[in-house]
Write a protein that binds this DNA or RNA. Structure first.
Length: 535
RNA sequence: GCCCCCGUAGCUCAAUUGGAUAGAGUGCUUGGCUUCGAACCAAGAGGUUCCGGGUUCAAAUCCUGGCGGGGGCACCA
């Protein structure tokens, strides 16, 4: 809907990106409004009121019945009311397009790769890691809605110091389980999880593992952790197209080849026996990092170079990495790789989400995987269900730190706004079911009450919501929109009848309800949330 | 010490990217089921947007100086 209005305003000489068109929920300020006149006033050095009058008159001149009213208000705002016929026609379009309503072709013929979660395989996914799941998934779906071919990917740091520590921890519990009295390894992983794995390892691998067989134990442990973590992710509706493992990059020689390429092109320098990344480009940030240690082994960053080399050379148009904020220091190094591997820095995004703080009755719980004090994603899903968890996480902007109080979880379970949203959908589906067959209509002109119009307007906003999110990646916009759409429908449901209505209002309202159900389903879908028929 | 994020109603979060009277949920007070499902609707109370200064028609938002919280600055991943 915005596109049409923007086109009409920009025809009158205001640059499209300067118009700042706003949807107005309260009709007293119009269906949409713009502050564009303030800009014109400055350019022409006239009063904002005069500029608004002038601009409004120009728009009115080209008006062909699209706007029912154009009004200057306040210090120079222009408020637009749009003809009911426009919204009635849009509602028919919704019915016509169904699942395709809201899609755009901004990414037609283009590819996007989105990496998210990528939790270290040293234990179960905890509540902090889990935040990246709904975020990445919803973003991936936004790209799909925009016509992109999307690859969802997960990176597994399945080798290195942390894995050795995991092995040592598992071996400790393995020995303990067999009745030995081993010493707990320094910096080993606390918590129940390693012990549970060790117990099943005794059953699966036998009782004769020696210290030199620790790799068997590690491989068994990693398998158990993968099983657990990808199962949890699947409960959140997340499935990956690519799961890349660091060990695989090393064993295939990809890491070695990437190092060699950087070396031959002069991007590595030697210092104190180690090889350092030294891109020497226009960036000013300090990005120096060890790529090959003085003992000759590559660091994790070496594999990251190989992995991003693969991403940048994969023919994708957009590359997106979603990390926790603690990876902040990693960004400049990764960004420096774009130029080196011939990828546009403007199409590479590293999106960070802030931490999740867990409280219990107001008291902050310190989360640490090593110390074994963390809340797992599975615990929360079991408690509130995947839909409520996804909606909760998506409700706040990725840049804000969120607090999660476990004492509130149970209470929130019943009161979670996701049910308000899903219930609106259920109500609509109920009406449609009870209607049975009804005549399809091509004329919705009887839909003219305030609640009819507001519902149609809100539905017509959906494609704009998708388009805006594609630009700024603020997927939390969806939860807001979903809530508002639901509220508008609940209002409609209270005030207007469908089943008892006479024709032609009955069929028209039926069409409206069906259109609503479609838009709501698409809204829930882009968040990765289910659309239940009953609750 | 340097860098990033945050600070908005008792609590958890929004605010269309600088717009009009800062909004929702939750909690609290009150009214509404003989009518498509009340997991709903309606009404009320609740604010120095952490503090100071600046920029302009307009600041929660931008610049600056503080205060407070979180994270990062490894030959760990």
């Amino acid at each position: 809907m915005k596109e049409e209005i923007l086109a009409r305003i920009s025809e009158c000489g205001v640059p499209r990106d300067k118009i700042g068109l706003e949807f107005q929920e309260n009709e007293s300020l119009g269906h949409y409004s713009t502050s564009a006149a303030f800009l014109v006033a400055r350019q022409k050095n006239i009063s904002s009121k005069a500029a608004a009058e002038e601009l409004a008159a120009l728009i009115e001149k080209n008006n062909d019945g699209f706007f029912s009213r154009i009004e200057v208000a306040g210090a120079g705002f222009i408020n637009f009311w749009i003809s009911p016929a426009v919204f009635q026609k849009e509602t028919l379009t919704i019915l016509n397009k169904g699942e395709a309503y809201g899609k755009n072709d901004a990414g037609k013929g283009r590819k996007a790769r989105v990496e998210y979660v990528s939790a270290n395989p040293t234990g179960p996914i905890h509540i902090g890691n889990a935040r990246g799941g709904p975020y990445g998934e919803s973003l991936a779906r936004t790209f799909l809605m925009s016509g992109y071919e999307v690859t969802r990917e997960y990176y597994n740091n399945d080798i290195g110091g942390q894995i050795e520590k995991l092995g040592a921890t598992l071996f400790y519990w393995y020995k303990k389980e067999l009745g030995g009295d081993p010493i707990f390894p320094e910096n080993g992983y606390q918590g129940e999880f390693p012990r549970e794995i060790a117990v099943s390892a005794v059953a699966a691998l036998g009782r004769d593992l020696k210290e030199s067989d620790v790799d068997n134990l590690i491989n068994f442990g990693l398998e158990e952790i993968y099983k657990e973590n990808f199962d949890v992710l699947e409960r959140l509706g997340i499935k990956y197209d690519i799961i890349r493992e660091e060990s695989e990059l090393i064993s295939s020689g990809a890491t070695e080849r990437a190092i060699e390429e950087l070396r031959s092109r002069g991007f590595l320098k030697e210092y104190e026996g180690a090889l350092w990344f030294a891109p020497k480009d226009e960036f000013l940030e300090d990005r120096e990092a060890v790529v090959v240690k003085s003992d000759g082994t590559p660091t994790y960053f070496a594999s990251d170079i190989a992995y991003h080399r693969e991403k940048f050379k994969s023919g994708s148009n957009k590359i997106i990495d979603i990390f926790g904020s603690n990876h902040f220091g990693h960004i400049p190094k990764l960004r420096a790789l774009t130029n080196i591997f011939g990828f546009s820095p403007d199409d590479f995004y590293v999106l960070l989400y802030q931490s999740v703080r867990v409280k219990r009755g107001g008291e902050v719980l310190k989360m640490s995987k090593r110390a074994g004090t963390y809340i797992t994603a599975r615990e929360v899903i079991d408690e509130v269900g995947p839909d409520a968890m996804i909606f909760s996480f998506l409700s706040s902007a990725s840049t804000t730190h969120i607090d999660f109080d476990l004492e509130e979880v149970k209470k929130r379970n019943m009161k979670n706004p996701v049910y308000y949203v899903q219930y609106a959908y259920v109500r609509a589906r109920n009406v449609i079911r009870k209607l049975g067959e009804y005549d399809s209509v091509s004329d919705l002109s009887v839909l003219a009450s305030d609640t009819d119009i507001l519902l149609m307007r809100k539905m017509a906003e959906f494609p704009d919501i998708i388009a805006e999110t594609l630009k700024d990646f603020c997927v939390h916009r969806y939860t807001r929109y979903a809530y508002e759409l639901a509220r508008v429908f609940h209002n409609f449901y209270e005030k207007e009848r469908v089943l008892n209505e006479d024709e032609p209002a009955k069929s028209a309202r039926a069409a409206l309800v069906e259109a609503f159900a479609g838009v709501m389903q698409n809204t829930l879908s882009v968040m990765g949330i289910s659309s239940p028929e009953e609750m």
